[in-house]
Design a protein around this nucleic acid. Structure first.
Lengths: 256, 256
DNA sequence: ATGATGGTAATTGGATACACTAGGAACTAT
DNA sequence: ATAGTTCCTAGTGTATCCAATTACCATCAT
């Protein structure tokens, strides 16, 4: 049985681009597909076969299928049996639910985190803010995203890694809507809001931090709704926002 | 090499239970594995190979792998590359985060749902309560779970299907802890709490409904913590609970 | 005796081959 | 011309096969 060991004497060592690194393919495929969908490179609603995807992303069909299964569960693709997968459509209803969850979770998370923030954390927050300003001034809208994400991450990290993971997942979905509808946030407004959140956190007042955060998100969501479906009834989201930060309701109302 | 083709000339045409229904295998494997883990049939921390699992659950390794990938993402199994998968361990930290999220999400969801409940909804809620009582009296702890789940589902359905899906997912994980630590909830206490939630919903007061719900969950979580790690510092969860229902904090304190 | 080293076995990761399903096009009959 | 039927094609779903990495174990040298 041991005769067949092809090991080191492999006559065709090249293998070309043959076998990709072990255990990396599915993760790679998943990442690339996800970012492709989030960035709109794969248009919402597009129906595409596994073969085409495998070709496009230079991945075998086996790891691709596992990646697709993950994306399906994340809600980025929908797949009926024996049918090509479809890139998930964008809808106002979906977006509203995303923000409902995001606001609820992050409000709790920041409330838990604020009392636990260390001076190192504040240093990182300030650094992130500075980086954001830097990219903002440079007009690099894409570069802003990393420090922006870092800042929000620090503000909710105290709730634990699992909570953070969920929040990140929701944030990614929201980003998809943001990017699709090319929302031009007023950078000044945004900076003011972020500064308000940070100051609230520094003051150690969790209620204030929650209010500023919800205000921030209410405004942010409103911009997308304006572009996505201006006539949408936001009663659900409004109820959620009202409970956490009554003054933020006005912002939403303005959006509707 | 092609001599071994077992394909269409299969001398054993029976196929027996051979080929399972199309497109059902991965879903079936996923479901069965998930319930097996949740119910403790696959012990936490157990390291087990794909082959063994495929044999145990009578599924091919290909669909099994896709199912495992899903479970990995759900956090029910952990998988290092080129290693047998391990059933995820149970930890107090994890459980606390689960409840943090669950309480946050369900509080928002019930707040949104209460004003939208119809008389049909209330009928279903009452029916679920009745069924719960029925199974409870019969001592069928497992039978109680279905109407219990149905009831909670109706109470959060107004927030939308996506939110419900997330809540269900979290609830399943929580159930895993519940079942593992064989928490004996006092059925009377539980019924009183459920009745309180339902009455609050009927009264149309969202704040009251939230309070009763949080109270219910705080008590429920405390029971598990008592068995899981009685000395655990529940500050994070307490902060969350305090913000939503101050009186529920006492329940948690009692648990700690 | 103990630690390092090499080999073997077990197990995962990926690709390919094949059966089955669904949908559409073409052809026939009315 | 149109409706019904049949066949064909594209595509998924699963099993099987092969490569590669890893762990375990025996052997050997110190």
């Amino acid at each position: 049985m041991s005769h067949s060991r092809p090991g080191p004497t492999d006559p065709e060592p090249t293998q070309e681009a043959g076998r990709k690194r072990d255990g990396q393919n599915v993760a790679a495929a998943h990442d690339r597909l996800r970012t492709a969908i989030l960035h709109g490179e794969l248009e919402a609603g597009l129906s595409i076969s596994q073969g085409a995807l495998a070709d496009r992303f230079d991945v075998g069909r086996t790891p691709l299928r596992e990646a697709l299964r993950l994306l399906q569960r994340e809600g980025l693709v929908v797949a009926k049996p024996n049918h090509p997968v479809q890139v998930a459509a964008l809808s106002a209803a979906d977006f509203e639910q995303l923000y409902l969850m995001r606001i609820s979770l992050e409000a709790t998370a920041i409330r838990v985190t604020v009392p636990r923030l260390t001076s190192d954390d504040f240093a990182e927050l300030e650094a992130s803010m500075a980086k954001m300003d830097h990219y903002e001034r440079a007009g690099d809208a894409l570069g802003v995203r990393a420090p922006h994400h870092a800042m929000h991450h620090v503000l909710v990290a105290g709730a634990g890694p699992r909570v953070c993971a969920e929040i990140d997942r929701l944030a990614e979905h929201c980003e998809r809507y943001r990017l699709r509808f090319a929302v031009t946030e007023h950078s000044d407004q945004r900076r003011v809001e972020h500064r308000a959140i940070l100051d609230a956190a520094r003051s150690g007042d969790p209620d204030l931090a929650v209010r500023e955060l919800v205000l921030h998100y209410a405004r942010s969501a409103s911009l997308v709704f304006d572009a996505l479906d201006p006539h949408r009834d936001l009663e659900r989201l409004r109820t959620c926002v009202r409970a956490l930060a009554p003054e933020a309701e006005q912002v939403l109302r303005a959006g509707a």
